[in-house]
């Protein structure tokens, strides 16, 4: 509830995109080394996890549903936040610091669209939000805890396949504006390195195109539609490589870029 308090429940007359359940595999497993099973449309795509991982499992499973079932979007493995109507996209492999950066920005008033998947509509080229709790791993938990002491971080689970994982409650305003897309303005490839100076380097578009394509979940599935969508994105945004260690510097730099 601490994480999902801002979300509304589905009404009786509304459409449901994905039927998801997290359950115990059987009665015995409720008591003996309890486990959680994730199912989607009664189908079980993953092996069970320890029961204590259930909340993280829900988030991962739901991400998987969206990423595998939403070919109306070009899906970039990237965090995306918005300020002044301009969406900033942060692609990144795990450990690049995209979630940390995304969490820090949302703690400073940026709107959260997603910390994991940037959904670029094939129809209009806009980024569509899927705001949910921001997944924070290992040191990021402490970093954000210090950076924003008022932030709600809950469901902390140790010893998952990704190490220690916790989730940051998304800003209420971001959840309330989940239906409003944003125009992509910048695509920034972050690298977090200890003691590194804050450095923003513009990337040539051809190189950036390929780098973005490598970070897409469904570029190969969409074929020419994906190519055209990414081309349109490239025409409209600036690309940068970004190295940082100081979150405050990073945020004031992005605030400047957002105008």
């Amino acid at each position: 509830m601490r994480l999902y308090g801002a979300f509304e429940l589905v009404g009786d007359d509304e459409f449901i995109d994905f039927y998801i359940a997290i359950k115990a595999p059987n009665i015995l497993r409720r008591f003996l080394r309890p486990q959680a099973v994730f199912s989607f449309d009664d189908y079980v795509p993953f092996k069970p996890l320890p029961y204590s991982h259930a909340s993280a499992f829900f988030e991962w499973g739901l991400n998987w549903c969206i990423a595998s079932q939403s070919q109306q979007y070009l899906i970039i493995h990237a965090a995306v936040v918005e300020k002044n109507g301009r969406a900033f996209i942060f692609p990144g492999t795990p450990g690049s610091g995209k979630s940390t950066l995304c969490a820090a920005l949302t703690c400073r008033g940026w709107r959260l669209l997603s910390d994991e998947m940037t959904l670029i509509s094939l129809a209009d080229g806009l980024a569509y939000p899927a705001p949910r709790p921001v997944s924070l791993k290992n040191q990021s938990l402490d970093i954000i805890g210090h950076f924003a002491p008022e932030a709600v971080i809950a469901s902390i689970v140790h010893d998952t396949s990704k190490g220690t994982v916790g989730h940051l409650r998304p800003p209420d305003l971001s959840v309330a504006s989940a239906a409003i897309p944003a125009l992509p303005a910048k695509v920034i490839f972050p690298t977090y390195r200890q003691q590194a100076a804050t450095e923003l380097v513009a990337l040539p578009k051809a190189r950036a195109f390929m780098k973005t394509a490598e970070n897409c979940f469904n570029y190969n599935i969409l074929g020419s539609q994906g190519f055209n969508c990414l081309g349109r994105l490239c025409d409209g945004v600036d690309f940068y490589d970004f190295t940082y260690s100081n979150l405050d510097e990073a945020i004031s730099l992005f605030a400047e870029l957002a105008g």
Binding site: F15, D17, Q69, S70, Q71, Q72, N220, I221, L222, G223, Q225
Partner: peptide, 21 residues
């Protein structure tokens, strides 16, 4: 078809086209 179910159907059609290829 209402837009909410339609996106799922179209998503499946896109995937299926790619599968055929």
């Amino acid at each position: 078809i209402p837009p909410q179910p339609l996106v799922h159907i179209q998503s499946a059609l896109t995937f299926s086209q790619r599968f055929d290829l």
